[in-house]
Nucleic acid binder design. Structure first.
Lengths: 225, 225
DNA sequence: TTCGGCTTGCTTGTCGTCTAGCAAGTTATG
DNA sequence: CATAACTTGCTAGACGACAAGCAAGCCGAA
């Protein structure tokens, strides 16, 4: 198999390489600023190959987006199952979930940037990927209803979920602008650790006393896991 | 003088019209997706005029950005002065500031989107607008140090400031993606009001008990600058 | 040889920039 | 005043630099 290792033909491998390259370039430089020639070069194929495999630039972009969302959906689902199995009180579950989400976002900057660009473009392509969109809605909605034991609190739980996303995303996107203006190095481990603690603390504090986390066990969960 | 009112030549008026049109188009569609022809059309001039006034597309973009930042700087500065004059305790000042900032962001979506796009582009153009960048840093840094009466709390106050920005921005940007996926209409007054309350509450709760709203050093001055 | 992965040449269209030029003042000079 | 010389706001044509997509062809494996 390795006799023609560099010239061997492997369509699935090529496809993946193109998707990987496109994901990186679309995320880092945006749709317009990325040419199919760039994608081909970055993937180690000729400039025509992306078009050959995906038909059009737009279709390639859609598949990149779909693959990204599929991964997120899987991560959310598995995280939710882990949380359900843990049988901890809501506050502890929330602290763990927020921390995990924070880390996930941090380690998937491409996803954040792609979605950010999509949002700025009015979510036009995202709207054409219905299954994943609804999957996200379902998964996230489930978390919401899980934390909001009293249905009356559902709106507030939704607010908390949005806040969790906002707090976990911001520093990934705004390193070069806001954080830089504040004199913060967005990638510095010390900052990220402090930010993680801060975000988890804020969200947990937001749950406490706001959502009817039934007084139940007077046990006080000091810090997150 | 008003006999040729519509055909009158007015360079400053034209300049402003071009800047207004460019701000809207750059914010809504992005740099690459906006042609100078688009800008000219939207401003009611020919496609050559933007180039005539601003030399290049990049320079036009920079001036749009600079004008935006200048406005924000002015708003932050006036808000800070109002807060200082109010002589309220830090918690009340913070609640007012967060609410005001929330409203400001909501009523200036162009600013948010421009900065968001800048961030995704690595802040390349923003870095070339030094005075405003440093002005923002100075103004924001001042707020931080105002709330962090004990210097040891400065890092935590900075985190809180970042959170305030994150919480106030997110729903402006992610209406078409995240909020839509959650079934929320991002522009609905009911949602925005709830979000405002939630954000202000979260940040104030974050200040409370976290930053040394110091038990006042001996002399209970109540509230001093 | 055949078939599918992959490349290369070409077409068509768009964008930014440059530049010549027109028209509506403005200033200098009689 | 008047009129010629000059400036300035603004337009429109031309050009070069790519981009995306298509189609014809090359080449490696079955």
């Amino acid at each position: 198999m390795d006799r023609h290792s560099d010239r061997e033909r492997n369509p699935t491998r090529t496809r993946e390489a193109i998707l990987d390259a496109a994901e990186r370039l679309f995320a880092e430089n945006g749709y317009d600023a990325t040419s199919l020639t760039d994608v081909g070069t970055a993937a180690g194929v000729s400039r025509g190959t992306p078009g050959y495999f995906f038909g059009s630039k737009e279709q390639l972009y859609r598949e990149v987006l779909a693959r990204c969302l599929e991964r997120v959906r899987a991560a959310v689902r598995s995280g939710r199952e882990r949380a359900l199995a843990s049988r901890e009180p809501p506050e502890v579950v929330l602290a763990g979930a927020v921390g995990e989400y924070f880390d996930f976002i941090l380690s998937h900057p491409h996803f954040v940037k792609l979605l950010e660009r999509e949002a700025l473009d009015g979510g036009r392509q995202l709207a054409h990927i219905p299954p994943h969109l609804e999957a996200a809605q379902e998964a996230l909605g489930a978390i919401v209803s899980e934390l909001a034991l009293d249905p009356a609190d559902e709106a507030e739980a939704q607010q908390l979920l949005i806040s969790m996303l906002a707090l976990s995303w911001f520093h990934v996107v705004h390193g070069p602008t806001v954080l830089r203006a504040l004199g913060v190095e967005a990638g510095a481990p010390a900052f990220l650790e402090a930010r993680r603690r801060h975000v988890v603390g804020l969200v947990v504090q937001g749950l406490r006393g706001r959502i009817g986390a039934r007084p139940a066990p007077a046990g006080e969960a000091g810090d997150e896991a």
